[in-house]
């Protein structure tokens, strides 16, 4: 086969594979929506522990990483802006820069990345293992809707965790970053808070809440989808890796789209 044909076959295979992937994911979402038929039979007490445990793992256990990264990013942004802005005579815009960089973009993205790499991979691995150990089968034989029982509490926990982590990230980045920046530059605290408050708009609050909602739904949904995929044990790491990479890529795209929607 000629080189051109090989390229054509490769491209065609990739396109078909991509299309099939989208179709399968849409089918998965439809099946989740379909499973909501049995929602009225679901007793909240049966998923309560899962929500608590997932929130603990996704949110509380991720706090040290979130705080650490937020401190570094906040401090860096404030130091850079305070040393560079006066050269252009725009030091009054530090609040705007913080809101734009941290609240609008880095905060949600960094939080999503931490959640995907810690909890997303764990969700995929856990479900895939449950499937291989026939735990999912035993749930189904008990008349338990696996889609609802497995996916729904993880979505709830993920929304709660991402929302809380985003707020904590932003707060730590602002105030922790402010404290760190005091080592190198001096900004009066009232000036700092005033510029920050001036720079905030209602869109920023709405965008934060909306992003936490969308990421909170998408991340567990994608990771659960990949968790249900492996047909054998040796496929588990392959799908865990896929889940992380593809969820990250999708979150980046969604973040860009949301930013365009809100701020363009």
């Amino acid at each position: 086969m000629s080189r051109e044909n090989n390229i054509a076959v490769y491209t065609g295979r990739k396109v078909i594979g991509f299309w099939k992937g989208i179709k399968n994911f849409v089918d998965f979402i439809i099946s989740i929506i379909h499973s909501f038929q049995s929602f009225k039979y679901l007793r909240f007490r049966s998923i309560y522990d899962i929500i608590i445990n997932q929130t603990r793992f996704t949110g509380i256990h991720a706090l040290p990483f979130v705080v650490f990264i937020a401190l570094l990013i906040g401090g860096t942004v404030i130091i850079q802006s305070m040393t560079q802005f006066p050269k252009f005579g725009i030091e009054g815009f530090i609040g705007n820069l913080l809101v734009i960089i941290i609240v609008r973009e880095i905060g949600p993205l960094a939080t999503a990345m931490i959640v995907i790499s810690r909890s997303g991979s764990a969700i995929t691995a856990e479900i895939a293992t449950q499937k291989q150990n026939r735990e999912l089968l035993s749930l189904e034989t008990m008349g338990i809707d696996t889609k609802l029982y497995i996916v729904f509490p993880r979505i709830i926990a993920s929304i709660i965790s991402i929302f809380s982590l985003m707020i904590i990230f932003d707060s730590v980045a602002f105030f922790g970053g402010y404290l760190i920046s005091q080592l190198t530059v001096y900004i009066p605290v009232d000036v700092f808070i005033r510029t920050l408050l001036d720079a905030f708009s209602i869109e920023d609050f709405i965008a934060t809440i909306l992003k936490s909602l969308i990421y909170g739904i998408l991340i567990p949904l994608l990771c659960c989808y990949y968790g249900f995929m492996p047909g054998s044990r040796f496929e588990i790491p392959i799908y865990v890796s896929r889940a992380v990479i593809r969820t990250l890529s999708i979150i980046f795209v969604i973040n860009a789209l949301l930013s365009a929607l809100f701020y363009l």
Partner: peptide, 28 residues
């Protein structure tokens, strides 16, 4: 969809692999 769930609930199944949920205790 609902009837099949209820039907499975009415039939107990003790399968070869048992399928106990790994992160739950015996009681749970």
């Amino acid at each position: 969809y609902i009837e099949i769930m209820n039907y499975r609930k009415d039939v107990g199944y003790l399968h070869t692999d048992h399928g106990l949920i790994a992160n739950m205790s015996v009681e749970q």
